[in-house]
């Protein structure tokens, strides 16, 4: 086995991760300037960084609207991608992701109940707490219904539990929206996942929790590497299976709740990005966490920029684009699995 990877091989993926940084910068710059009726240019970003002029309308648009939006896209993208990676690692199932496993929809349901004011005392609680509880509840349900507390886990059982819960939460969310009707006009839109109205308050909310979640995911890197070898083997090598699963679940819930409370349930980022990352840098989870964070940020920045252009000058929710992309990706993945199984 390749527990101790040769130096040459570990270096190369690190360089590749490094190469993602300039890509992230370009995507960030594009997100700051593209599709605006104010004719924003990268030059405006540069002059803004050099000397911010509060009376300059372009500077104000970039600094007070585009910047929080781009920052939110960066961190939400990173959070969702890493949450997907940890879920796939924990369940050893390539189809696992927050949107397929009901964790996003659990958080979304909690948000919908809060935003429509169906239960008055829930509406009074802070948003992050509400979505965190929703994601947490979904996480706990998938954890036990899917049999993650047992060894060995049954991959099909985990999927079935996740998909079933996902649909349960989706239908309950729809129910909440229908019951509240006109008040829920915005909720319905939000359920597609959108970054249109994020502010610096949202950024302040998502950044610390995402950073905390990423730190947890990095710590999980080595145990997830061991888990990849199989559950028995991992335990033979001294890995604490139970501990990994609990901490992993906590990390996933934390990341998803932070992302959903700011941007709504943006679908499929957590499914797509880990696969792209694996194709790019291999299967070492310590590196995959970094790569997924960067790739997730890039993907969401680009998707949000494109979504803004979809019906320019009006905004479209970014969730439309990621779901379109993701559904195709999902089919591609399923097909490849079937072909593999047949071969």
């Amino acid at each position: 086995m390749t527990l101790a990877l040769p130096v040459r091989q570990t270096l190369s993926p690190l360089w590749r991760i490094g190469a993602l940084l300039p890509v992230l910068l370009v995507a960030f710059g594009l997100a700051l300037t593209s599709y605006s009726q104010f004719d924003l240019r990268l030059r405006d970003v540069v002059t803004l960084v050099l000397a911010f002029d509060p009376d300059n309308l372009k500077h104000q648009v970039i600094a007070s609207l585009r910047l929080p939006r781009a920052l939110a896209a960066t961190f939400v993208g990173a959070a969702l991608a890493v949450a997907g990676l940890v879920m796939q690692g924990m369940t050893r199932n390539p189809l696992a992701s927050p949107s397929v496993f009901g964790v996003s929809s659990g958080a979304a349901l909690a948000f919908a109940v809060s935003a429509t004011g169906l239960i008055a005392w829930v509406a009074a609680l802070p948003l992050l707490l509400v979505t965190f509880c929703g994601a947490g509840l979904a996480g706990v349900l998938v954890f036990f219904l899917g049999g993650l507390h047992r060894t060995p886990i049954h991959p099909v059982r985990v999927i079935l539990a996740g998909v079933a819960l996902n649909f349960l939460f989706l239908s309950m969310t729809r129910g909440a929206v229908i019951l509240a009707d006109e008040n829920a006009y915005g909720v319905f839109h939000w359920l597609t996942g959108s970054l249109g109205n994020v502010t610096f308050d949202d950024v302040r909310l998502v950044v610390p929790w995402t950073v905390l979640g990423l730190a947890g995911a990095l710590w999980l890197g080595q145990p997830l590497n061991l888990l990849r070898l199989g559950e028995e083997r991992m335990q033979n090598l001294g890995g604490g299976l139970r501990q990994v699963r609990w901490l992993g679940s906590l990390v996933v819930v934390l990341l998803v709740a932070a992302a959903v409370s700011v941007a709504g349930p943006i679908g499929f980022v957590g499914l797509m990005v880990p696969h792209i990352a694996r194709a790019l840098i291999g299967s070492d989870y310590r590196l995959l966490v970094l790569a997924c964070a960067l790739l997730g940020a890039i993907l969401l920045l680009v998707a949000d920029t494109l979504a803004r252009g979809l019906r320019f000058p009006n905004d479209s929710p970014v969730g439309i684009l990621t779901t379109l992309l993701g559904a195709g990706f999902f089919l591609f993945l399923a097909r490849r699995k079937i072909l593999e199984a047949m071969a």
């Binding site: 605006s36 009726q37 104010f38 609207l65 249109g196 109205n197 000058p313 009006n314 905004d315």
Partner: peptide
């Protein structure tokens, strides 16, 4: 038409009337 603040600033109405559903809204 659902908007962002950027779109609103660009539309720049002389008079702006808003009907709010709720105490704290967008």
């Amino acid at each position: 038409i659902q908007i962002t603040l950027e779109r609103l600033v660009q539309a720049n109405p002389d008079y702006f009337l808003v009907g709010e559903y709720g105490d704290q809204t967008a």
